[in-house]
C-alpha cells in the first residue's frame, strides 16, 4: 500500500563520525536535548549525504494548575517548545518547530517537586528530540 522503509538503503552516515553537528544549547535541559539529538541523528537523515548543522532555540515552562481549596498545586505541566533550523553545507535550510507537554502529578514534598522538575525535563527533552527528528525525516524525505 505504498509504504517504503525510510532507511531502506542503509545508513546515510557510514562515514562513522557524525555528519550532523548540533550547536550548544544552554542550561541543563538544553544540554540533555543536544545529547538526545546527537544520538538520534547519528545514523543521519534520509537523502542527506553532506555535512549539516542543526540550531535549536529551546523554551521551557512549568505551568502550574492550582485547583486545591487552599490554592496549592493539583497538577503541573512541563512544556518544552523548540524552534530548529537544519542548514546543509550546500546552503539548503529546513526549519520547523516542535512542542511537548509532560504532565506531573502533584506531590506534597517540596523536594519531590524539585526532583519532578529535573526528571520531567529530561523526559521532555527525549520526547522533543524524537519529534524534531521525525519532523526532519518528513521534510527531507518529501524534499527528495
Amino acid at each position: 500500500c505504498g509504504f517504503r522503509p525510510l532507511y531502506a538503503d542503509g545508513s546515510f552516515n557510514e562515514v562513522g563520525e557524525g555528519l550532523i553537528t548540533v550547536d550548544e544549547i544552554n542550561d541543563r535541559s538544553g544540554y540533555l536535548l543536544r545529547r538526545e539529538l546527537l544520538k538520534e541523528l547519528a545514523i543521519g537523515l534520509p537523502g542527506l549525504n553532506e555535512r549539516a548543522n542543526l540550531k535549536v532555540a529551546l523554551e521551557e515552562d512549568l505551568e502550574r494548575i492550582t485547583l486545591l481549596t487552599d490554592g496549592s498545586v493539583s497538577r503541573s505541566f512541563l512544556e518544552g517548545r523548540a524552534e530548529f533550523t537544519l542548514t546543509t553545507e550546500s546552503g539548503e535550510a529546513f526549519n520547523g518547530d516542535a512542542q511537548v507537554q509532560i504532565p506531573i502529578s502533584a506531590t506534597q514534598s517540596p523536594f519531590g517537586d524539585v526532583a519532578a522538575q529535573t526528571e520531567s525535563s529530561a523526559r521532555a527533552m527525549r520526547e522533543l528530540a524524537g519529534e524534531i527528528v521525525d519532523d526532519l525525516r518528513l521534510q527531507l524525505e518529501s524534499a527528495r
Partner: peptide
C-alpha cells in the same frame, strides 16, 4: 522514597530501560 513517588509510566518513558524516574 523521596524523589520518585509521584511518577507514572507514560509515553515519554515507555521505551526506557528503567521506566521509573528518580
Amino acid at each position: 522514597i523521596e524523589d520518585g513517588a509521584f511518577f507514572e509510566l507514560d509515553t515519554s518513558s515507555l521505551f526506557d530501560a528503567n521506566a521509573q524516574a528518580g
